[in-house]
Nucleic acid binder design. Structure first.
Lengths: 278, 278
DNA sequence: TATACTAATGACTAACGGGTCATCTGTCAA
DNA sequence: TTGACAGATGACCCGTTAGTCATTAGTATA
C-alpha cells in the first residue's frame, strides 16, 4: 500500500546517508511525517524493512540484467549493453546502490548475509554465462578470472560517481569497460580463480528456486495485481508450471508480457530460468 | 604503553568480526579482561581508539608499499613485489584489512572520512608513480584508468581470501595480477578517468605534510623511543629538516636506519617524500 | 608503619535504541 | 445520533550504550 512505499523511499534516503545501524526508526518516521506506531503497521520490525528494500532492488537489478543478457542476440552489443544497463540502474537508484556498496559485507544479521550471497551468486551466474558465450572455450581456464574482473570493474567504477558526485558519461564508461574486458579476456593466460575455488566459495548454499517456491511467489503476484493482460499471463504461466501444455514460443510470449511490470520482474526471472528460455 | 597495545589488539578482533558500531566498550573491556574505567585511562573515547587503529595500520601499509616501490630498482620485479607486499600485508593483518573493506565508506564521523581520503590518495599517488615509471608516456591518456584498475584488483581479489577463508597462493595471485595489469596497460586505448576527473575527486583536500607537521611527529617519535641508533638518526634528521647540511647519501642512510623500526615507518615515509629520496 | 601517589574498579547516569499498546480520530452505515 | 471499526498516535517499557567518578588496591618512598 501507499504507506509502505513512502516508508521505503524515505528510509532509503537516510540509509544511504548514514547506514542501517545509525538510522533509527524515530528518524525514519520523522522524515516520513508519520508516527512510530504507524511504522509498525507497515513493517513488523526494522529488519523487515531492510530485507524488503534489499529484495525490492536486488530483484529489479538482477532480473533486468539477466533479461538484457539473454535477450541481446548480437554478441557485438552484449558487453556494452551489460555495462550500460548496470551503471544506468546504479545511477537511477543511487541511494540503494550506495547502501549496497556500503553495507556489502556487514554481518549483523545471518539473514542479510544469506540474501546477499544469493543475489551475489545470481550475478556471478549471469556474468559467467555472458563471458562463456562471448569468448567460448578458448578461455575455459581464465573465465572465472574474467568474470571476477567484470565484477571488480562494476564495483570500483561505480564508487567513482556514487561517492564523489562526479559527472557520469555512461556511454564512455560502458565503452571503456567493454574494451578493458575484451583486452583481459583475450590476453590473460595465468588463472588465479580455479573452478575448485569457486566451488569452495559457493559451498554454503546453492539456492535453486524450486517449483513450489515459484508457485508461491506466482500466487502472491496474481493476488496483488488487477485484472489485465499481465494477470492473465501470470495465471496461464501458473497452469504451465503445474502441468506443461503450452509451446515454448507461447511461454516466451507470456513472459515477455509480464517482464516490464514492476511487480513481476522477479518471478519473470525465476520462470525464465525454470523454463530455460533464452 | 602496554595497555594501549592490548586494547588495540583485542578491539581489532571484535571490530573485524562485528564492525565498529556493533562492538561496545563493554565487550572490548571484557575481551581484554580489564574494567571499563581502565579503557578510558588509555583512550579518551571509542572514536579515539578507532582513529588510533586506522592510523597505526594505514601508516604501516602505506609506508611499506611506498618503500617497496621506491627501493625496487628492477622494473621487471616491481609489479610483482607490489602485489605480493600488499596481499601479504592484508593476509598478515587480516583483521584490520577486513574492517578496512567493511567500513570503507561509512560516514558516521567526519574525521574518519577525512582520514580515509588522505590514505586513499597517498595510495593513489604511489600506484600512479609506479604505473608512470613502468609504462612511460605511451599510456599518458590511460594511466589513471590503469591506476584505478590496480586499486580495483587489490580490493576485489582481497575479498576472496579475507571473507571466504579460502587458501591463498600469494605467488600465483601476484603473478596473475601482474599479467592482468600489463595486459591492460599495453592494450587499452579508451580512457574513462581523465585528469580533470581525478582533480575533481581530490578537490576536498590535498594534504601535503608541511615541514612543521613533520617536525611535530618527529619530536613525538624522538620522545617515544629509547636511546639507540634509531633515536640518533631521528635527531640528526630533525636537524637536517631545520637546517639542511647533510648530503643526500647521508640522509638516505639515516632514513634506512629508521625504516624498519615500527614506530618510525610513517615519519620515514613523510621524510622520504620531503627530501625527495628514491 | 605511615604516607603519598598512581592504576584500576564498577556502580552509576543520562541518553537513546527498538518495540508495545491503551487511547484517540475520522468515517460510514444504521 | 449512535455504534463500530480501521487507521493512526505517542507515552511508555525495558535493554543497551558511552562515558563518569567516588572508591579501592597496589606500590614505592620516608
Amino acid at each position: 500500500m501507499m504507506k509502505k512505499q513512502l516508508i521505503m523511499e524515505k528510509a532509503l534516503e537516510l540509509f544511504a546517508e548514514k547506514g542501517f545501524e545509525s538510522t533509527s526508526i524515530q528518524q525514519i518516521t520523522e522524515h516520513c511525517g508519520i508516527s512510530k506506531g504507524a511504522f509498525y503497521l507497515s513493517f513488523k520490525s526494522k529488519d523487515e524493512l531492510i530485507l524488503a528494500l534489499i529484495d525490492y532492488f536486488m530483484m529489479k537489478f538482477t532480473s533486468d540484467i539477466d533479461y538484457v543478457v539473454k535477450s541481446t542476440k548480437n554478441d557485438e552489443d552484449l558487453l556494452y549493453k551489460f555495462y550500460y544497463t548496470i551503471f544506468n540502474s546504479f545511477d537511477k537508484h543511487a541511494d540503494f546502490a550506495k547502501i549496497l556498496i556500503k553495507e556489502q559485507m556487514r554481518s549483523f544479521n545471518e539473514e542479510f548475509i544469506l540474501k546477499g550471497r544469493i543475489y551475489d551468486q545470481a550475478m556471478d551466474t549471469i556474468i559467467l554465462s555472458m563471458v562463456e558465450r562471448l569468448y567460448g572455450d578458448e578461455i575455459e581456464q581464465t573465465k572465472h578470472d574474467v568474470m571476477y574482473c567484470v565484477k571488480g570493474f562494476m564495483k570500483t567504477y561505480s564508487e567513482l560517481f556514487l561517492f564523489y558526485n562526479l559527472p557520469l558519461d555512461l556511454d564512455l564508461l560502458a565503452k571503456s569497460l567493454v574494451e578493458k574486458t575484451n583486452v583481459l579476456a583475450r590476453h590473460i593466460t595465468i588463472p588465479f580463480i580455479s573452478t575448485e575455488l569457486i566451488q569452495l566459495r559457493q559451498q554454503p548454499m546453492t539456492e535453486e528456486a524450486t517449483k513450489d517456491q515459484i508457485l508461491e511467489i506466482l500466487e502472491q503476484n496474481i493476488d496483488e495485481i488487477e485484472e489485465s493482460i499481465e494477470k492473465e499471463s501470470l495465471i496461464l504461466l501458473k497452469q504451465q508450471l503445474v502441468e506443461p501444455t503450452l509451446s515454448p514460443a507461447i511461454v516466451k510470449g507470456l513472459l515477455e508480457n509480464i517482464r516490464t511490470h514492476s511487480h513481476c520482474k522477479w518471478v519473470s526471472y525465476l520462470l525464465r530460468n525454470y523454463f530455460k528460455i533464452q
